[in-house]
Design a protein around this nucleic acid. Structure first.
Length: 284
DNA sequence: AATCTTGGCAACCGCGTGTGA
DNA sequence: ATCACACGCGGTTGCCAAGAT
């Protein structure tokens, strides 16, 4: 279908933003909130296209933007996430609070990409992946695979799906099928046999929910996140919290808890443990 | 000191997807 | 079912500062 340009180019400012423009945009969004980008410039009195305003806000003006150098932990996380997700910068950025997809993309293109290339061109010892090697500066978790480092891309274009169709009250049969579907990606024996205690689920953004229906590996992330959100840890046991996730029930939780023997440590969010999780190359 | 090269980053561009009429 | 619109995403470009010659 035909597609008109997002804005007429005539009479609009382009290039670097001035301090005044920043001020106007920030003030407008503060007063009216985000969204309606197409009309925003006109209403705010900016000679910019809506896209440009959105970008400026998201990448620079947002109050929660974290400025400054990417930490070592962040860097390692980016590498792992890129290994898992490919160039899906927004998904990667979703795991790095305060970092933007543009920032991460730039950082990858200027720094990490080269590192990764260098590492893959001079293969590491067979039993170590590039990722685990870099992490070994701080972590002692054994790599799980003897395969050479691979930076394969799952798909280059993120596919979003904003509708997740999950039955509100699954039948017992549905429990079973949902359960197996949800857990299978995690099921590879590697997770069961190796270092289970280090396994935990990091916070996942809503994007994962979207990704789920696309049927790719992120489904696993959703499943674990959903489970984690649905059960409260109390005195050594996890209790099913009926209020939090209506489409998960106690049966499902018990199956899951039995399989993966939860403990309190796993409830903690921790970059390094996520990194460990991401080391599992069986992920598609 | 002047010029050239390189690297980092902000911004732009085109395309894909969701939504509502 | 189709279309236009709005938004979000990833790739690319262009500017500028720092370093090298």
């Amino acid at each position: 279908m035909g597609r008109s340009p997002c804005c007429s180019k005539e009479g609009l400012n382009r290039g670097a933003w001035t301090a005044l423009e920043d001020k106007i945009l920030a003030a407008y969004i503060k007063a009216h909130g985000e969204g309606k980008w197409r009309n925003l410039p006109k209403r705010a009195g900016l000679k910019r296209c809506g896209k440009s305003c959105r970008l400026r806000w998201l990448n620079y003006l947002r109050p929660d933007i974290k400025r400054g150098n990417i930490s070592h932990d962040e860097e390692e996380l980016i590498i792992r996430l890129h290994n898992l997700l490919g160039n899906r910068w927004s998904l990667i950025a979703g795991r790095l609070p305060g970092r933007t997809d543009n920032e991460i993309k730039n950082y990858w293109n200027t720094t990490l990409g080269k590192k990764a290339k260098t590492q893959s061109s001079s293969p590491p010892p067979a039993e170590q992946t590039a990722l685990s090697r870099s992490r070994n500066k701080k972590m002692t978790i054994e790599p799980k695979t003897a395969e050479p480092p691979s930076f394969h891309v799952i798909r280059t274009k993120a596919i979003r799906c904003t509708k997740v169709l999950i039955p509100a009250v699954p039948s017992p049969q549905e429990h079973h099928s949902f359960n197996s579907t949800a857990i299978d990606p995690l099921e590879p024996q590697a997770l069961q046999s190796q270092d289970k205690d280090n396994f935990e689920v990091h916070h996942l953004g809503s994007e994962e929910v979207h990704e789920t229906c696309a049927g790719d590996s992120d489904f696993f992330s959703l499943s674990c996140n959903e489970f984690q959100a649905s059960y409260e840890y109390a005195g050594g046991d996890y209790n099913f919290n009926n209020n939090m996730s209506p489409h998960l029930d106690e049966t499902m939780f018990k199956d899951w808890a039995t399989n993966y023997s939860l403990d309190e440590e796993r409830a903690n969010l921790d970059l390094e443990s996520l990194a460990f999780l991401l080391d599992y190359q069986e992920w598609p």
